[in-house]
Each structure stands twice: as C-alpha cells, then as structure tokens.
Design a protein around this nucleic acid. Structure first.
Lengths: 226, 226
DNA sequence: CAACGAATGTGTATTTGGTACACTAAGCCA
DNA sequence: TGGCTTAGTGTACCAAATACACATTCGTTG
C-alpha cells in the first residue's frame, strides 16, 4: 500500500462495509434494487447498494446513509441480516460486510440516479443479473429470512401502504411464499390476530366491487405474533 | 495513535473482533463461559471470550480460534448471532464485533486457564457478574435466539452427549424454556418428529429403573423441523 | 337498462395437532 | 420384601388449520 496513507494501526484492520438488500413487490414479483458498478472490480456487474462504514457511524446508520446516497431511498424498514467476512470476498482488500435487508412499498420508491452516476434498477428475484462479489448469496439469504419472518411477525405490512385491502395483503403473502392461499382462511387468520382494523374507507380501483381498506393497529412496528 | 504503527490506510478502519457466547447446562442451569479481564479497560470485569480478527481469517475461524486459545474449548456447535457496532462500545478505538453463540455438552467442557493467565469460569445466566463493554446485551440476545430456535430446530441436541435419555432431553427443554413440560406429551411430540432413534442400550445410573437411550438420526446437523 | 365481467366478501364441516391428566414398571437399597 | 426413585405409557378434550362454493357490488358495454 502507498505510504501516503494516513490512518495507521499496529496490526492490520479489515475494511468494514454495509450492504443493503432492498426488497419490494413490483408487477407481482419480489424484486431487489441493484446498482450497476462503474469501476473495477466487477465493473459492469450489478451490486447491492452499500459502502464503507464511517469511523464514528453506527452500522445501521451507515446502511441507511448508503441507501439514501446511492439510491435516494429512505424511510424504509431496515434490519440487520448477517455479516459476511470471507477473506477473499473482495479482491482489493479484506472487507467485512455487515448486511441488512430493507422493505419498501411501491409508494416510497423513488430510486434516483446515484451521486456517482451509476445505474440503479429493480430486478425480479428470479431474474437477477450477474452479481458482483458474494451479493447473490446475500440476496438469497435475505429472501430466506424475509420469507421465514412472514410466518411469525407482522413484517409483511412493511411492504404495503398505510391503507390496504385484504386482497393486497394476501397477494404479498402469496408472492413471498410462492403459493396460492385460500381467501376465506387467509382472512379469518389475519383478522383473528387483531393486528389490523378497518379504516372505514373503500378502495375503488377497477371496474368491480370496492374493497374495504384496513390499516395496521400498531403501525411501523414489526411484532412477533402468536 | 503512535507513528510507529505500521498498517496504514487512506481512510480510517475500525477494528473487527469476534466474541463468543458459549452456553452449556450445569447444575440444572443455563450457563455461559466468561473470562476475567486482566487489563484495562474494564479490568477485573468479566467478558466473553473473543478477540481480534486476523487479516486472512474467516469470521467463524476467528471465533473458534479465540475460543480455543482463551478457554481450551473446541469442537462445539457455533453459529453467527449478530454484529455489534455502536461507535462507543469500546473506549479505546472503534471496534465492530461479530458475535457468535456456541453450545456444548458437559462432556466437551474442559475450559483451561487461558494463555494470558486470565481466569475463566462458568456463570449461571441468572447470576452473571458485572460484564465488560456491551457483553451483557450480547448474552441476552444469544439466550433469546437459542430459546426461540428450540421451537423449530434440532438445536437442543447440541447440548447433549451423543447418547441420551428422553428425561435428559426434556430437562434441556425445561431449563431453556424455564417451564415444566408434561412428560407424556413431550415424548409423543419428540418421537413423532422422527429425529431420534433408540440406541438399544440403557442408562443405568441411579437407584431406579434404567432408561432407554437415544441418539439423533442425523447427528451434528441442526435442522429446521416441522 | 339489462346482461356481463371482475373482484369482494362470507360460513360450516372436517381434520389435525396440542393439551390435560394418573398409574404401572423396573431397578436399587435398606 | 417394602419403600424410594425415575422410566414409561394412552385417552379424552379442545383449539387451530384446512377444505370448500356462492352471492354481492361495482363498472362497462350492447
């Protein structure tokens, strides 16, 4: 390493980064937000938003900052996923990446061109491009975690607007679980948990019967249920 | 920092450590292995085994190495828990700690005096001493994770010898869950899962009827069940 | 304005899984 | 042989999950 480097330690330190898997549902498919890399290594490949931890910055703050800087997305639900530290995962230097996953509803999605002019785009999880580093592993682990959390938390509501219909909610579950669910049983189950209530208003989109809309009783809080 | 430091970077790097919460059951209590700190900061307080990541070392390898070096324990089940990165969690420098939890049966427990002559000792989880840094938080998170994994994995078997009785197994569950369980229902439930089988041998300890011993069908593999 | 298309909304019967509960069996020891 | 200690076993009840079909309410169109 060049001797002009300024920050010195008496034993080697790895670099620490955060990377974020931002999920949303687009066109009936679970999708993740990726950035096309403009520089080597892995130039031209797609990668998760993320970057180096500032020395006085909390891990979660770093993840949020990188997500905002690189994609313009903020205010989403964010949770730590796993820490990847294979010594060879980045060819440049030793990099330990603390990864997060985030959930966003379509409302909040305003990914803009990043400050370093890289491309950002959504990809359906079953049609991912070639990914940089170990980011494909990270995405699969995040997906697995998200799906398993569906079963015992209220995490699904983080992918819906404040007010939603039961059909929309069921659709989130069906897309994530990748299986169809019985409408009556689904509604019975959700309502029995007492976590949502009617807004009193109706969704009047489409040329069919309007649907009651609901909202979460304890919003912006992911709880363990049952 | 002293200018004699040798490893230099063009932006500051945090230190990365691993810390391990090693659980076992001793005297009918869930217990963790701790080391008394010989040096500041937190001199005299108790801490988790752990230490700095070598620059070419995998995270899990680091956790295993530190556990072996500091406590003499090896061959235990180990799993990543969470990464703690509060900028103020260590007063000396910025330290990001990737934490693990480990499970050991009494058989494997041979904690020896560490190489740097610190004291190691087991503490019941309800009688912990004053702990260094944020190690109390780490232990509580590990306990929570372990208990919740009881419900949907075969993790409990990692706390028992290869061959065990159903009463011993039930005891592990009772201690971790902190509640008594019905013997008949417990046995019915475990056997219905088809994860253990009789060894054909009997445990003949104590002045009472011998107990059939069992072992895990798929040993040294923690599986998700149901 | 009637018929149609499309999505909403609703109840019951069955099966399955979980829970509650008490006595006999087998060994050791005095 | 009687007493102590832990092992080992079955059934009845209740709760939760599943399977399953049709009427309702809009908008649109002929």
């Amino acid at each position: 390493m060049p001797s002009t480097h300024r920050h010195c330690y008496d034993y080697p330190h790895p670099a620490v980064t955060t990377d974020v898997v931002l999920f949303t549902i687009r066109q009936d498919a679970l999708s993740v937000l990726l950035i096309q890399r403009g520089n080597p290594p892995c130039q031209g490949m797609w990668a998760l938003p993320g970057g180096f931890l500032n020395i006085d910055e909390d891990l979660e703050a770093c993840a949020k900052r990188e997500l905002l800087e690189e994609t313009g997305v903020e205010g989403v639900y964010l949770e730590q996923l796993y820490t990847f530290g294979d010594p060879k995962r980045d060819p440049r230097e030793r990099v330990v990446s603390v990864t997060f996953y985030a959930l966003s509803q379509s409302d909040h999605l305003t990914p803009k061109a990043s400050s370093d002019a890289a491309l950002t785009a959504w990809f359906a999880i079953n049609q991912l491009p070639e990914l940089a580093f170990d980011h494909a592993d990270i995405i699969q682990l995040a997906r697995k975690r998200l799906v398993s959390k569906l079963g015992y938390t209220t995490i699904a509501f983080q992918m819906l607007p404040k007010s939603f219909t039961l059909s929309q909610l069921q659709s989130v579950y069906e897309i994530l679980l990748n299986e169809g669910l019985d409408k009556r049983n689904f509604r019975k189950g959700i309502l029995a948990r007492n976590i949502i209530k009617e807004t009193g208003e109706y969704s009047r989109i489409g040329n069919h019967r309007p649907a009651k809309t609901y909202r979460v009783i304890n919003p912006s809080q992911v709880e363990i249920i049952k």
